[in-house]
Design a protein around this nucleic acid. Structure first.
Length: 523
DNA sequence: TTCCTGTTGTATAC
DNA sequence: GTATACAACAGGAA
């Protein structure tokens, strides 16, 4: 009699039991299921993954473990490189099937193809499923003749009529077999300290990781049918003291909540109300942006770089370590910018429009520093840092791709005022400005000295002077952007045979020594 | 080739 | 609150 068949379901993203086709396939085919997550210690470094996101991941794993134990199973957290760990586990547990969710990121694709051939050599069959996104990017590319749609609108017409699969139920039972004895706790979910991180100082991030938390948050929003039906992204506030958007992004990033579940729940609410908002501003519209950006990450070469990325405008960004550091640390002297960066670091989440504000400021708006630098910082601190989405949004805001109206520059003083005239958001995150009168809170350097004294905040001593003159640098930058776009245009025309034109308008490389003296191109 | 549209700008005028 | 200049982009449709 043949012994019971054993499978590993390998969790990576998709940290959930609901809508998990790969896990269900393992359960269908095998009696003994080993749910595994592999932690690669090499990634446990703060320069890549900030401690708050790592904490969120560990909480998600603990939640998964709890849910599995409720079903008389458990999560096995193994440490090491997947290509080392998995073969060991295959042998140890006599595995014949490996299942996982497809991942479209370049690193993951490389890793998974290596694992596939490894498994093949060890007589382990591999089954993988698309369940992180609404659509299968490979299928979308096939439908669009291998072209990634260049605009949101053309993406929407592409997916019109493509069915979004219904989400699957969580399995009631995982496995017949009793989990292996692990008295030493070899496979337990580690702590932040175990992974070499220092403990989080100050209040914990307000968002806890895991499928349970994610589903709770989803339900909470879905119960508010009016909010769901009327949701319009541009009308939500970047500086409200409580989030004005759903904060489902970290749960979608790790797959604690299935995007297909979210999508079908939205459709179900839409059916129950008289009218609802539409893409691009609606919540379904937000999911479509996610899909479009994932497709870009899948189909555009060198997507996370400027150089070698055919969709990205080539812009001669400035290198300026002091400015970059001031931006990251929240010491630019612009209270709205500094408050947003403080919220980013202390809570791991900031509103979408707040991201716009600081991203525009770092790149084309003020500092003219590469979006790649900004993307690195965001991916360190954001709980929801997602390779495709983060990259795409940085390209958008820096007017490198997707968005091209570079002359629309966010004002670090004006933008926040529109939705928070009193500056309460700034007061919350920058207590040093707590007593600054609202007239000056967005630009404290304009406050008379006696006002600064009365507020207990002297600019230049208690709070920094602004590192740039926004009016001057934003105008200068528009000129530089125009140069870069002209060069792009000339290159494009040059390809058609008129190469002389390409040389006519080369983009000027801005020099650090001439930051304020650049004269905008004359008419 | 021209025209239209593009989630989410700002300052100023009425 | 709404309109307009600012200096003017790209992609896609017609």
């Amino acid at each position: 009699m043949a012994s019971a068949k054993a499978a590993i379901h390998w969790f990576r993203k998709g940290l959930r039991l609901h809508d998990n086709p790969a896990l269900l396939e393992a359960i269908k085919q095998c009696e003994n299921i080993y749910p595994v997550f592999i932690i690669d210690p090499w990634f446990a470094r703060e320069e890549f993954v900030g401690k708050r996101r790592y904490q969120f991941l560990l909480e998600s794993l603990s939640d998964l473990d709890r849910s599995l134990r409720e079903r008389k199973s458990r999560l096995y957290v193994a440490k090491g490189k997947p290509e080392d760990v998995l073969p060991q586990l295959f042998r140890k547990w006599s595995i014949s099937l490996l299942t996982f969710e497809n991942d479209t990121e370049p690193y993951a694709r490389k890793r998974d193809s290596a694992i596939r051939s490894l498994a093949e050599g060890l007589n382990v069959s591999v089954k993988s499923f698309t369940s992180h996104t609404l659509f299968d990017p490979e299928h979308l590319l096939f439908l669009n003749k291998d072209q990634v749609p260049g605009t949101y609108k053309s993406f929407c017409s592409l997916v019109k009529g493509v069915k979004v699969e219904l989400p699957l139920e969580a399995p009631a039972q995982i496995s017949n077999h009793i989990p292996v004895k692990d008295e030493a706790g070899e496979y337990d979910v580690p702590t932040l300290l175990d992974m070499g991180y220092k403990e989080i100082v100050g209040p914990p991030t307000p968002f806890r990781g895991g499928e349970s938390e994610g589903l709770k948050r989803l339900r909470m929003h879905m119960n508010n049918k009016r909010y769901i039906a009327e949701f319009e992204k541009p009308k939500t506030k970047p500086n409200s003291l409580e989030p004005s958007t759903t904060v489902l992004s970290p749960y979608l990033k790790f797959g604690c909540v299935s995007s297909r579940l979210f999508y079908h729940e939205l459709l179900s609410v839409y059916k129950q109300v008289k009218s609802h908002s539409q893409p691009p501003v609606s919540l379904v519209g937000q999911l479509y942006f996610r899909e479009w950006f994932y497709l870009n990450g899948y189909g555009v070469p060198n997507f996370d770089k400027m150089i070698g990325n055919p969709r990205c405008v080539q812009i001669p960004w400035i290198e300026n370590a002091e400015h970059l550091e001031a931006w990251e640390k929240g010491t630019t002297g612009f209270p709205f910018i500094d408050a947003i960066m403080t919220q980013l670091k202390t809570e791991g989440w900031i509103h979408h429009l707040a991201r716009h504000m600081v991203a525009c400021f770092l790149t084309r708006g003020d500092l003219f520093i590469s979006w790649e630098e900004g993307a690195k910082v965001f991916s360190r601190y954001l709980l929801d840092a997602d390779w495709s989405l983060n990259t795409a949004n940085w390209q958008w805001l820096s007017a490198s791709a997707f968005f091209h109206q570079y002359f629309r520059v966010y004002g670090p003083v004006s933008f926040g005022k529109k939705t928070d005239k009193n500056g309460d958001y700034i007061r919350k995150y920058l207590p040093v400005l707590k007593k600054m009168p609202h007239k000056y809170i967005y630009e404290p350097w304009t406050a008379p000295l006696h006002v600064q004294k009365a507020a207990g905040c002297i600019v230049g001593k208690d709070y920094p002077e602004p590192i740039v003159d926004h009016k001057i640098v934003s105008k200068r930058n528009i000129g530089w952007m125009a140069e870069a776009y002209r060069k792009k245009k000339a290159m494009k025309q040059g390809k058609g045979g008129k190469s002389a034109k390409a040389k006519k308008n080369p983009a000027k490389r801005p020099s650090n020594s001439n930051l304020d003296g650049f004269v905008v191109r004359k008419k």
